[in-house]
Nucleic acid binder design. Structure first.
Lengths: 227, 227, 227, 227
DNA sequence: AATGAATGAGCCTTCATTCAT
DNA sequence: CATGAATGAAGGCTCATTCAT
């Protein structure tokens, strides 16, 4: 990126570029996004992007820093204000939900990043992400110690949340398509906010320590079962 | 695709191409995958791919049909052999887990597909996927009628499973990196199989109807909460 | 071409290939014609063409030899049977017309050949063509000596005939299109045979020695005329 | 094509590209012309052609518009200044001759176009051509009404002119080859300009209404004529 | 600060041709 | 005699990037 853009005009240009780029990367991925189109949609000349920001890679980094890198502190602080483990967990989910609602393209970018094993992920982003998951780790441990949570791997829970939200957030249209084409009986899809609330409840349910009597015995797989 | 290759030699060639292509698409995505490289890695001439299969799009379609489309029937049959709703749900999760273990690249492809709103999804794949999710829909409805499951949107549950498994399955390296870079206390990541089992339990937990007394009251968001 | 095809089956195959090839070369030209398509339309395997005939260039040569190379003798003999110069000229035109009607694709091939300055023309064909034009030369000279023809360059007359016939023969559809799109007043196009007859008359008219009184004085170009 | 290039430098580039392209299309045809070679001969990068013009098809269209489309008005105006039908007809021929002399490649392109039934002909070219032939139509009708022309199909006359000129203009070398290889007595080929003048006279002769006495009776085809 | 023009490298695809059977 | 499979060599087109202004 260019050394401190002087004019506010330039800053506006940069912001416009970044905002366009987020969407482009989310829609098409790193390889699929076209500098040409980003420039056109941001209403700048292609060369302007190179002048202000640099590479395609640099642009991608800038986008990730903007949408995720700066959020770790906010996560830590917000979750920290919860009083019980469950409240903390709910706050954690809500933080994620809110960040997704603010940057609806983020989970899409992140799905791709996961798929490519973080190939394009800038180091800073990785660090920030680690800090975020750290909060969840502490929360789960606290709940376990207090006897209200079962044991659960934090990373797993995190990706369960993000996975479900991510898939769901941007995929209503696709889902509807699936449902329509396979003529299966299916309840209508709810709004993202409603789904987010449902996920919040489900996640709490997931890790909650339940009375022993409520647990059904797992059924052992049949002999010769191909599944 | 060419109408059924005559010689078994040709079939072997096709298989080799497809196997290479799955990985390529998973690694780099549809836009990022290079026909050149697929050919080289499959040890065929590039033109051979076009001779046998056709397009990049056709190749992609063939890959998805190979790894997912042909397994829908297996899903339906296997889940159907479960006797209780919970057993069916566990079977469903296990089916997904096994398919992922057999085709570890599949969830990666699907993550990208979700991210691009199914832009490259061939129609048949949509149909196949719809059939698979249909099984889950029936299972959840059955459990709900029997009073052992809470209400839950099937698509949501499906993507929760796939999301968590998908993110997790191929991301151990990335996760380790996150964990390492975040200076937090963190339990070591378990193997995929162990995680899969954990997810199976968690999912069952997720939809299980719990006695009212065990449910903690949700805590309302504070005023001034930066949400 | 292969050394004397033994079986009659092979000869039939070859004929089928050639007939298909004429059309293909006429429609798309040498560069535009596709061996693949010729094979498919001739209902043979692509390799069969190579087995029996050889190259794309060899195929083209074979086509020209078939449709034009062997016709010179016929031209010479037929025209020779005319008793007056005018009759000979009419016979010449008719020979061309008939050859075109027998091989409707020939003028198309020839137009392209003219356009590329005979780049692909095999030597034998050039010789044959020279002999054909030779007949016209003799006819015109004879008419000139008898005082019934004006002086005219034979090659020019020949290409006038072929040009008009060639353009016209295969272009009714295009012409109709032109006429339609440019909403000009235009008589309906006649059939090829009628046009051929018209051309025959016109050509005779063209070279006929007319009484001096019938000739209008050519009008000198205006000063400053940009034309 | 790009919306009006800003700099004159770019305009020069475009002109260079177009000029090279005319020749390439004339020499090798649409299918045979290579963008690679056009770029090299025009001394631009291949991508520059795509930047300024677009497609191979667009390039072809631009070429035709440059060499023919823009001259329709000139045709109409110039011919219109003729006072008698014969003068108009002569002007028409001269217009064609001059356009060919200015763009010697044009008739070659048109020959191929005729051969492929206008497969690549851009719509606008069809319109332009229609306008041009429209002038001839009016001229011939005028002459017919005045009793100085015989009835003749305009399109036929046009293609007779273009055909003869076209074949002849670019084929001196081929013709010489024919003449040389055919061991016949043959007058030496004249220059293009001389031929053009000859064609002008011939064409006028062609449509001139001649006194009945001057017309030789057409000789009926003999029985058994191999026609 | 910003842009139109230009480019080198590479990508998807096609095509004439050959090989093994 | 004929064919399915395979391939090397382009060919058209795109794209990230740079240059000159």
């Amino acid at each position: 990126m260019h050394p401190t853009p002087a004019t506010p005009a330039a800053q506006a240009t940069i912001r416009r570029i970044l905002e366009t780029a987020v969407e482009a990367f989310a829609e098409k991925g790193f390889a699929g996004a076209r500098m040409d189109e980003i420039a056109k949609r941001a209403k700048v000349n292609k060369a302007t992007i190179y002048y202000h920001i640099g590479n395609k890679a640099a642009l991608y980094s800038a986008v990730l820093h903007e949408t995720l890198g700066q959020r770790a502190d906010l996560f830590i602080e917000t979750v920290g204000r919860g009083r019980t483990p469950e409240e903390k967990l709910r706050r954690y989910v809500r933080c994620i939900v809110e960040n997704i609602m603010r940057y609806p393209s983020l989970p899409r970018i992140f799905m791709r990043e996961a798929a490519s094993l973080g190939a394009h992920l800038p180091p800073q982003t990785a660090t920030d992400l680690g800090r975020i998951i750290g909060v969840l780790t502490q929360t789960l441990a606290e709940g376990r110690r207090a006897g209200v949570f079962v044991a659960a791997t934090p990373v797993l829970i995190h990706f369960m949340i993000v996975g479900a939200l991510g898939y769901y957030a941007q995929m209503e249209s696709v889902i509807q398509r699936f449902v329509r084409e396979a003529a299966v009986d299916h309840p209508p899809a709810a709004s993202f906010e409603a789904s987010a609330k449902e996920i919040e409840d489900l996640v709490v349910n997931t890790v909650r320590a339940v009375p022993v009597t409520a647990i059904a015995r797992p059924i052992p797989a049949e002999k010769g079962d191909r599944s």
